[in-house]
Simulated scan of single mutants.
Amino acid sequence: MGTTAADYLAALTPGRRPDLPEATAGTLRLDAREDGRTDHWYLTVADQQVEVSRSSEDADLVVRAPRAVFDRLANGGVHVSEALLRNDLTVQGNIRLLMLLRRIFPGPADARHPRALGRAATTGRAGAGEGRP
């Protein structure tokens, strides 16, 4: 199956993450449920950095899901918004912070950035018109 969410979060290295918005800051608590037990991960995001700890403190956003859902997020098997729309996870608090998770967890392996797709489409069109009278 690959990396578990616990392994992925434990391995997050401190330091600047340019993929995170500069002006966004807040705390997120991930509540992973399995077999009647809940593990808590506490993420503090500020200045494009993420600090991870194990805590059940109150947070700006609390995300609850079965452990398997968090594991799929950590492996790029599911996108955060997809899991939310399918009711695979629930959120409570500042939902704007939810999109930080899509930048913290990897996306699907076959996903491409929209800008790259746009550039490829533009380049393809420009090349298709060349050579025509």
Rank of each mutant, 00 (worst) to 15 (best):
residue 9 L to V: 12
residue 12 L to G: 08
residue 18 P to K: 12
residue 18 P to S: 13
residue 19 D to W: 12
residue 21 P to D: 10
residue 23 A to S: 13
residue 24 T to D: 08
residue 29 R to L: 01
residue 30 L to P: 05
residue 30 L to T: 00
residue 33 R to Q: 03
residue 34 E to H: 03
residue 34 E to G: 06
residue 34 E to M: 05
residue 35 D to W: 01
residue 37 R to F: 08
residue 38 T to L: 10
residue 39 D to M: 06
residue 41 W to F: 15
residue 42 Y to E: 00
residue 43 L to N: 00
residue 43 L to Y: 03
residue 47 D to V: 08
residue 48 Q to K: 13
residue 49 Q to V: 10
residue 50 V to R: 03
residue 51 E to C: 09
residue 51 E to A: 15
residue 53 S to T: 12
residue 57 E to W: 04
residue 59 A to N: 08
residue 59 A to T: 05
residue 62 V to K: 07
residue 63 V to F: 06
residue 63 V to D: 01
residue 64 R to F: 05
residue 64 R to N: 06
residue 64 R to I: 01
residue 68 A to T: 06
residue 68 A to C: 04
residue 69 V to A: 07
residue 72 R to A: 09
residue 72 R to T: 07
residue 75 N to H: 11
residue 77 G to R: 05
residue 78 V to P: 07
residue 78 V to S: 02
residue 78 V to Q: 04
residue 79 H to T: 11
residue 80 V to T: 06
residue 81 S to I: 08
residue 82 E to D: 04
residue 83 A to T: 02
residue 85 L to M: 11
residue 85 L to T: 06
residue 87 N to Q: 09
residue 88 D to F: 06
residue 93 G to I: 04
residue 94 N to L: 07
residue 96 R to H: 08
residue 97 L to I: 00
residue 97 L to K: 02
residue 97 L to C: 03
residue 100 L to R: 11
residue 100 L to E: 04
residue 100 L to T: 05
residue 101 L to N: 01
residue 104 I to A: 01
residue 106 P to M: 11
residue 107 G to Q: 12
residue 107 G to I: 10
residue 110 D to E: 15
residue 110 D to K: 13
residue 113 H to Y: 13
residue 113 H to V: 13
residue 114 P to I: 09
residue 115 R to Q: 13
residue 115 R to M: 14
residue 119 R to W: 09
residue 119 R to I: 14
residue 121 A to D: 14
residue 123 T to F: 11
residue 123 T to R: 14
residue 125 R to A: 12
residue 131 G to R: 11
residue 132 R to H: 15
residue 132 R to M: 14
